[in-house]
Design a protein around this nucleic acid. Structure first.
Length: 553
RNA sequence: GCGCCCGUAGCUCAGCGGAUAGAGCACCGGACUUCUAAUCCGACGGUCGCAGGUUCGAAUCCUGCCGGGCGCGCCA
């Protein structure tokens, strides 16, 4: 029996009690089934009696007793105890848990997937680093977390489109072009230009691809350097992210918004809504109407549209493409944008709480030899995605970034994450998978295939370590659903660490394969299924995080 | 000054109003003729920053304060 099925059983029990007039309450839509930490509290526990006590006007324990009596009649339930303030501690009938192993193996890659968010169409925008330089460590956090969140939402049935907004318009692009041009001519970059070795590389590439470029008139040169330089950077960023296992559905060019007249249309739409005004020669959006700190300029006094105006057009474009929900992931250094974005959405007439979601991720440091690796964008020696991957590898990089809550600033210790020991959480989890893979290979060598699901004696799995593992496996669908709902991929990582630990403890106390001349029994087969089920969950969970599940280590 | 995030074991961090607050690491003590010991078991370790409030119940929600990070442009 899965936790979801038990939830239905409990709800039905409440309904039955209410129907016969034993409890004067409304039947709740949701009852909470949790997995108690303390094994003495049964396989599962529910606080439903505590919840219903007040509306029923009865003491919680009394309500609990009535419900316990009803639940005990269910064939899948062995015992129900009323404990503490009024918890119902439920122990399932022998074999009711074991079915989870068969269910997981049978479902395979689909195990854990639900339809919790079926029908939702989301646009996920993340990284969107400026195309004037390589992908930095800060952006890498979102590459890992954003992609994992995308996979997580897909696993819960949502339709997800991953998008990268390319800021290929505006003054910064011109500055970038000037920097490339200067370097190409062997001159120092301008005061406000871009520093770093990559500037030299890109400049040389542009020159190589455009013979005669350096002889063109100055302004024509600049255009080529800017255009081709940005194109080269976008290509490099894209390929870096592809190599990191992060693939986008679309790279959306800001410039196309300028060229198509989308900005004017967006400003027009906002004007129609009555939130645009003119002052000091500029065109403003009255975002303060919707809680922003100050009003924002859409078109500068000089006639140039602002970045914010492009944001408006971009948002409207996403909505016009049918996305019900626009999710944007930003670094903490952009947290000041939330207010104006929300206001912007409200100003278009949309609901900022429903149509827009902005996730803020705190900063990341790479630590080497106990010292944070210094980042200085001005000097051009900032830490890059590639530096992190060089230091710890792709799997560890993605896992380290995805296992922490985005609300938490993190230090990634290069030494720890590149270590091949159990200090390193990603190895701990991957090792569990490799260990099971090895065991299943040995089983096959011994002529012990898993066989048919119908033949598995699931009731044989009665050891406490087996029950622990089965309960953990049974949690997986709920872990994915709640992690998706909370936009918290790190919960999947933490769950996997717990599952790996539960497996290792099972392995330690429960021999799976027969030794010597022992005969394989029905328990052998049941345990093989349990191992295979664990491997399935580890694989599916790691896949959500974009981390490999190795068969050998 | 204002806004957002954080403050939980020596360290790094989990903990979407529930039971005795957890894990890994570090330190100490154990377990390999046995399916991968990259593992497991035990011990040690806490005023959940402080003070109020809401609640049957608060690390979790609310308010104030203290400490740290980030942000507050007609930059992007």
């Amino acid at each position: 029996m899965t936790p979801e099925q038990l939830q239905d059983v409990v709800r039905t029990a409440v309904g039955a009690v209410v129907d016969r007039g034993a409890l004067p309450v409304e039947v709740p839509d949701e009852v909470v089934i949790e997995r108690p930490k303390n094994p003495e509290h049964g396989d599962y526990a529910t606080n439903v009696a505590l919840r219903l006590a007040k509306p029923a006007g009865r003491p919680p324990r009394q309500v609990a007793e009535v419900l316990a009596e009803e639940l005990r009649a269910h064939e899948g339930i062995a015992t129900v105890d009323v404990a503490g303030p009024g918890f119902l501690n439920i122990t399932l009938a022998k074999g009711a848990l074991g079915g989870l192993a068969v269910r997981a193996v049978t479902a395979g890659a689909a195990y854990g997937r639900t339809d919790a968010f079926a029908g939702q169409k989301l646009n996920l925008e993340f990284v969107s680093a400026n195309p004037t330089g390589p992908v930095t460590l800060g952006s890498t956090r979102w590459a890992a977390v954003g992609d994992a969140l995308g996979r997580l939402l897909e696993a819960t049935g949502a339709q997800v489109s991953r998008e990268y907004y390319v800021n290929d318009a505006g003054a910064q692009i011109e500055r970038f072009g000037r920097s490339l041009q200067a370097v190409a001519h062997g001159r120092p970059v301008p005061e406000d230009g871009y520093q770093g070795d990559y500037v030299e590389t890109v400049a040389q590439q542009v020159v190589a691809e455009n013979p005669g470029l350096l002889e063109l008139p100055d302004d024509e040169q600049l255009t080529v350097f800017a255009d081709r330089g940005v194109a080269a950077m976008v290509a490099e960023i894209r390929s870096t992210l592809d190599g990191f296992g992060v693939h986008y559905d679309r790279f959306f060019s800001e410039r196309t918004l300028h060229e198509s007249g989308a900005l004017e249309k967006a400003v027009g739409r906002l004007r129609e809504q009555g939130h645009v005004f003119e002052a000091d020669g500029a065109v403003w959006l009255r975002t303060t109407t919707f809680g922003d700190d100050k009003d924002r300029v859409l078109v500068k006094a000089g006639g140039e549209p602002t970045y914010f105006a492009a944001d408006c057009a971009y948002y409207l474009d996403k909505r016009a493409r049918g996305f019900e929900r626009v999710v944007i992931m930003l670094g903490a250094d952009h947290s000041g944008y939330v207010g104006r974005y929300k206001a912007l959405v409200a100003a278009t007439g949309d609901d900022p709480e429903h149509h827009l979601e902005i996730l803020i991720g705190q900063l990341v440091n790479l630590v080497k030899d106990g010292e944070p690796v210094r980042m200085s964008k001005r000097k051009g020696n900032f830490v890059l995605l590639t530096d992190l991957v060089d230091a710890v590898g792709i799997d560890a990089a993605r896992y380290a970034l995805a296992r922490a809550s985005v609300d938490q600033q993190i230090d990634i210790d290069a030494d720890l994450w590149s270590r091949k020991t159990n200090d390193n959480p990603v190895f701990y989890v991957q090792y569990a998978h490799a260990r099971i893979s090895s065991l299943l290979r040995n089983a096959a060598d011994l002529g012990l295939p898993l066989g048919e699901a119908a033949d598995v004696d699931v009731a044989a799995l009665a050891h406490p370590r087996e029950s622990d593992l089965l309960r953990a496996i049974g949690e997986f669908p709920r872990v994915l659903a709640s992690a998706a709902e909370l936009r918290a991929p790190h919960r999947v990582a933490r769950y996997l660490e717990e599952l790996a630990g539960t497996y290792h403890r099972f392995y330690d106390s429960c021999r799976v394969l027969p030794r010597g001349d022992e005969e394989a029994t029905s328990l052998t087969t049941a345990r093989l299924w349990l191992c295979a089920a664990t491997a399935t969950v580890l694989r599916n969970g790691l896949d959500v995080l974009g981390v490999t599940a190795p068969e050998r280590m």
